[in-house]
Amino acid sequence: MESSVDAVENIIGYTFKNKKLLEQALTHSSYPESVSYERLEFLGDAVLGLAISNHLFLAYTSVHPGKLSLLRAANVSTEKLARAAVRHGLHRYFRHNTISLVDKVTEFVDAVAREKNHRALVVYGGLVKAPKILADIVESIAAAVYVDVDFDLQRLWVIIRGLLEPIVTLDDLEQQPQPVTMLFEICQKNGKKVDIKHGRSATKSTASVYVDGQLFASASSDQKDIARLDAAKVALHKLEHMLPATASTVMFDCCAGGIDDTFEIEAAKQKLYAICGTKKWPKPVYSIEKDEGTPQEKKFVTSVQIATPGGILQMSGDERSRVKDADNSAASFMIRALQECKYV
């Protein structure tokens, strides 16, 4: 255990006065004859929420509290914290005695590694559900630090912020569609009525999604905002299998068959941004698909994604010598495809 404690101290850049706290933070309840992280996780959930709230309050001095709540929820969600654990390799150091945990964690770690850009910020969830134990580890480590620095919240934030980077920003939220918003928009488009109701037990907040008056999905969490997000994600996943294909994620190259290889629109990237603004869609998201060649003869291909109420549309551009030009090519094809498919 000593080597695990040393490794985690190196990861977070902090040396504990009481190393037993970190040992406890890395110990699952299934591990025999040891104190588990459950009490620390309880504290860490609250203290991380407060630390993030303080940061957002100071960083966004004129933003509405509703948006601040969304930002806080995105920054302390199970998905966000689990990815932080994987990014820093914390999953390698926790003690447990449950084989099923290994399978779930391995599946998630492998799924993250297979993503096209596994270091990109994913706000609301990838292909595999994030195991809660990974988020618990981050919360427990944060609580262990908090106790070790004599409950000094400012010192905790200085130490733990690097573990949480990148912090989700307002721009990130705009670029990745919010599950609750998408749920309401998709249901409205398909003539369905949706309602989300909240309840609370002694320790958990529960969100229940009702579609056309019938219970459709539910989720629970320590925080109301996260329960609401998780319930919306479950509902969206179910809707993908029930509604027409236009309501799910699609590769948007089926409408562009008639576009020749030399097609280009001047200032297409700016024009596509304007289209999304007019439609009240999130900002386009560009990704480098190909980066080859010598420094003197570089070749880039980029793709662009747009999140609409009907799904995520994707289009790749032609090969160009500069990323800026590759982005413009992808935007040009996207605009033409939007026109041919009657989106604009």
Rank of each mutant, 00 (worst) to 15 (best):
S3F: 01
V8K: 05
S34M: 11
V35A: 14
L40V: 00
G44Y: 02
V47E: 05
Y60C: 07
S69G: 11
L70Q: 13
L71I: 04
A73E: 08
N75C: 02
T78R: 15
E79Q: 13
K80F: 06
K80W: 10
A82Y: 07
R92P: 07
Y93F: 10
T98A: 15
R119E: 14
A120E: 11
L121T: 15
Y124P: 03
G126M: 01
L127Q: 11
V128C: 05
P131N: 09
A135Q: 09
I137K: 14
I137A: 07
S140R: 11
I141L: 13
V145H: 12
V149C: 12
L153C: 02
R161T: 06
G162W: 08
E165H: 09
V168Y: 03
L173I: 02
P177C: 10
K189S: 13
G191A: 01
K193I: 10
K197Q: 15
H198P: 03
S205H: 14
T206C: 11
V209I: 11
V211W: 10
D222Q: 10
R228T: 04
R228L: 09
L229C: 10
D230M: 02
A231C: 00
A235R: 01
A235W: 05
K238F: 07
L243A: 08
P244Y: 04
A245T: 11
A247W: 00
A247H: 11
A247N: 05
V250I: 14
G258F: 10
E264Y: 10
T278A: 13
K279Y: 06
V285Y: 09
Y286R: 08
E289G: 06
T294W: 01
E297I: 08
F300H: 02
V301A: 06
G317D: 01
A326W: 04
M334W: 04
R336S: 05
Q339M: 09
